[in-house]
Simulated scan of single mutants.
Amino acid sequence: MNRFTVKDAAEYLGVCTDTIYTMVRQKEIPHFRLRRRIMFSKEAIDHWIRDQEENNVQEQQPMTLSYY
């Protein structure tokens, strides 16, 4: 299992470390703590990304309009 630090996760997701810390604080991203360090599982991050993509697609589906 690949493990990421905050810096690794930020680089992997293409965001700054402050964004990762905010997402951790707000419990928006899967993580775990190893003593005082915040760690991420690559598999959990990849799964979270797929879930985010699926939720985004479902929200963007256009409403069906019916014409009389």
Results as ranks from 00 to 15, higher is better:
Met63His: 00
Lys7Gln: 06
Thr64Glu: 09
Gly14Ala: 01
Ala44Thr: 13
Arg37Lys: 07
Pro62Asp: 05
Lys42Val: 10
Ala10Asn: 00
Asn56Ala: 14
Tyr68Trp: 05
Asn55Val: 02
Arg36Gln: 12
Lys27Asn: 12
Ala10Arg: 01
Thr64Asp: 06
Glu11Pro: 00
Ile38His: 04
Phe40Met: 06
Tyr12Phe: 15
His31Trp: 11
Met23Ile: 00
Gln26Thr: 07
Thr5Asp: 00
Met63Leu: 13
Ser66Asp: 11
Asp46Arg: 09
Met23His: 01
Thr17His: 09
Ser41Met: 04
Gly14Cys: 05
Ile20Arg: 06
Asp18Arg: 12
Asp18Gln: 12
Glu54Phe: 13
Ser41Asn: 05
Ala9Cys: 15
Ile29Cys: 09
Pro30Ser: 07
Ser41Leu: 04
Gln61Gly: 04
Gln60Thr: 01
Ala10Ser: 07
Lys27Glu: 14
Val6Ile: 14
Phe40Arg: 01
Asn55Leu: 15
Met39Tyr: 08
Thr22Asp: 10
Phe4Thr: 02
Cys16Thr: 00
Glu28His: 06
Glu59His: 11
Arg36Val: 08
Ala9Asn: 02
Lys42Leu: 14
Trp48Leu: 10
Thr64Gln: 10
Glu11Gly: 03
Arg33Gln: 15
Val15Tyr: 05
Glu53Lys: 15
Phe32Glu: 09
Gln60Val: 00
Val24Met: 06
Gln61Glu: 13
Thr5Trp: 07
Thr17Asn: 09
Met63Phe: 01
Glu28Ser: 14
Phe4Lys: 03
Val57Met: 13
Leu34Arg: 07
Met39Lys: 14
Leu65Asn: 05
Ile49Met: 04
Gln60Arg: 11
Arg3Phe: 00
Ala9Phe: 05
Leu65Ala: 12
Tyr21Lys: 12
Lys7Ala: 03
Pro62Thr: 06
Leu65Glu: 08
Asp51Cys: 13
Pro30His: 14
Ile20Glu: 05
Lys42Arg: 14
Ile38Ala: 15
Arg37Ser: 12
Glu11Cys: 01
Arg36Leu: 12
Phe32Trp: 13
Glu54Gly: 08
Leu34Cys: 12
Gly14Met: 04
Gln60Ser: 14
Val24Leu: 05
Cys16Tyr: 01
Ile20Ser: 08
Gln61Met: 12
Gln26Met: 10
Arg33Asp: 02
Glu59Ser: 13
Glu54Asn: 10
Val24Tyr: 00
Val6Asp: 03
Arg36Met: 12
Lys7Pro: 00
Tyr67His: 02
Asn55Cys: 08
Arg33Gly: 08
Ile45Met: 09
Asp51Lys: 10
Gln52His: 07
Arg33Met: 15
Pro62Lys: 12
Arg50Pro: 00
Trp48Gly: 05
Glu11Val: 03
Arg3Gln: 13
Cys16Lys: 04
Pro30Ala: 13
Leu65Ile: 08
Lys42Pro: 03
His47Glu: 04
Lys7His: 02
Ala44Asn: 13
Trp48Ser: 07
